[in-house]
Nucleic acid binder design. Structure first.
Lengths: 166, 166
DNA sequence: GCAAGAATAGTCAAACTTGACTATTCCGTG
DNA sequence: CACGGAATAGTCAAGTTTGACTATTCTTGC
């Protein structure tokens, strides 16, 4: 949850926005480095408002329905920096769901197993290709994308090794 | 959620157990490759029972309080294999919370930033050391541990590169 | 033989997440 | 200028997760 808050606060620190803008930006630019979903974002924004970390203003434009513009508050900025330091200093084992299946893969017959692993390999390759298609981002988002690519490639290299051993 | 179910079904396929045994085993042996927590496991076991994938039997031993022994059912085994195939064939971008902080790290002054990254590096090293301390597991759990180690090392190598660039 | 701590075996309220859904306005084309 | 699809802007019920808590039984040292 903290990392989700960090993301929203970070985006709002850069610029006050309404929900749609936020979600649109995340979907279009950050989908590969975060898993924050729209409904989650709205719920979290509401919680951040309750805690006074963001402020909401209603804005009417033309005769569109009024929309909520979220802006980070002073205490939000403080919290942002605190969260940033904590999360940046943090490292945890990468326990992605995918590891679970590996623990049981010998329960499948070799043929089937190899089949599944090949499918996995294809998907990994696709993700890597997608990442490389993204034009170099101006901001520090690059770091996240870079890390993502490094991890995916390491995963691929390992997977290929496993396949050879089968 | 699917990977959590997969884990429990997989463990029960190997052997019927009661909740404590399951959780104890996970904590002591799998903590580094899964994030399934005790309360989550109990809740999930109950849901699996409702869906008929596991069966519960009360067992009294000595005058200890009766405990619930969970066993996988026939349809549980089917579901297990299905889940296994799906998850094994799956690959997703590794969006760990840690990536989020990277997107904003330039918001910290260089000195502080380097400090945080060094702390992160230390923690990464610790996790890697811990992983290598684990005696080679007999089962396919090894694959998960191996992958984990590979990913952590890739993360470390990348992080060291970033630190050099600062 | 008893007190303290470990092991055993969970439970629960509160928080978090999300797929699916709603509703309005804008815009391009025929 | 009417209509359909995209863009805009969310909401909500249902499901999932977990930190903190409870309660009993064993076990070991003194």
């Amino acid at each position: 949850m903290d990392h989700h808050a960090l993301l929203l606060l970070g985006l709002l620190k850069n610029q006050a926005q309404h929900g749609y803008q936020l979600n649109d930006f995340i979907e279009k630019n950050l989908a590969r480095v975060t898993d924050l979903k729209k409904a989650t974002a709205y719920a979290l924004l509401e919680r951040l408002r309750e805690s006074g970390l963001v402020a909401v203003k209603l804005e009417q434009e033309g005769n569109r329905p009024p929309r909520k513009v979220y802006a980070i508050t002073q205490s939000g900025e403080t919290e942002f920096l605190e969260l940033l330091r904590t999360e940046l200093s943090h490292a945890e084992p990468i326990s992605s769901p995918e590891s679970t299946a590996l623990m049981f893969m010998t329960e499948l017959e070799p043929i089937e197993r190899i089949d599944c692993l090949n499918t996995r390999l294809e998907k990994l390759n696709q993700h890597i290709a997608n990442l490389e298609k993204i034009p170099t981002h101006k901001s520090a988002v690059n770091f996240a994308l870079e890390r993502q690519a490094v991890l995916l490639k390491a995963d691929r290299a390992w997977l290929m090794g496993v396949l050879e051993r089968q």
